[in-house]
Simulated assay, not measured.
Amino acid sequence: MNFVATTTRDGGSNPSGDRRVRRTQAALARALLQLVEKQDLPRITVADVAERAGVSRSTFYDHYRDVHELAEVACTAMIDRLIEAIPTPRTVTPELGPDAIRSLEGFFASLAEHAGLYRALLGPQGSARVADHIRRRMTGVIHERLSEAVGEQGEQGEHAGLPPDLPPDVPAAFTAGALIGVASDWLERGCPRSPAEMAALTWPLIGALYRI
């Protein structure tokens, strides 16, 4: 998975878009993702990441305070792309069901690809920053699309069984929390089911929510 980050150690952004900075940050992120597949995140040191990325430790500290901050940036950047593919009420229809299931499968497959990283950051001793970012981003996307779906229902007479007076914030937060909970539990237990199985098991639950 390609990765480009522009977050600096002070939490701001690099306004100049300097290519060298972005290349270095991308190299550090790739190095971490490679290392985390072989050992637990808490055991990975700055020296490990710097060596794998081909940079000095001082260069690492020019961009991130520690390995955990780098992991948070890498995780949230990848999550932003995953969230866009999550099925929402606009796809909760029989004819679009297969596409929605494939989207869900892609979501779980992407989590499994870097399971070690996500497990460390979303587990009991994980990152509150990452968990909150995921919740907010996912809720926001679902809220936006749910609002569109309700608007379409008012114009077309029906849409996925949604009542016209449904406040989008509640089902959006509910759906986001449910998906995060399912994904976190699946990762914590070592991904015992395949992404395809998880998609097939999760989709009916989402469908049930929006066929009110």
Rank of each mutant, 00 (worst) to 15 (best):
V92A: 12
I101Y: 12
T91L: 10
D99H: 15
V49E: 10
E51Q: 13
V55T: 07
E72K: 06
T76N: 09
D99T: 15
F60K: 12
T59C: 01
E84P: 01
R102F: 01
I101G: 12
P98S: 13
D80M: 04
A74F: 03
Y61A: 04
R90C: 04
D62L: 03
G54F: 04
A71C: 04
V46M: 09
A47N: 13
Y61Q: 05
V55G: 03
G54Y: 08
E95Q: 11
D99L: 15
V73A: 13
A85R: 09
L70P: 09
M78H: 06
A85Y: 00
Y64H: 08
F60Y: 11
P87M: 00
H68D: 11
D48P: 03
A50M: 02
T45N: 10
I83H: 10
A71S: 10
D80R: 14
V67L: 08
A100S: 13
A85C: 01
R90L: 12
V67S: 10
D62M: 02
P42W: 07
A85L: 03
A100E: 12
R57E: 01
A100D: 11
E72T: 07
P89L: 07
R81L: 05
V46Q: 11
C75D: 07
P89G: 07
V92W: 03
S58I: 03
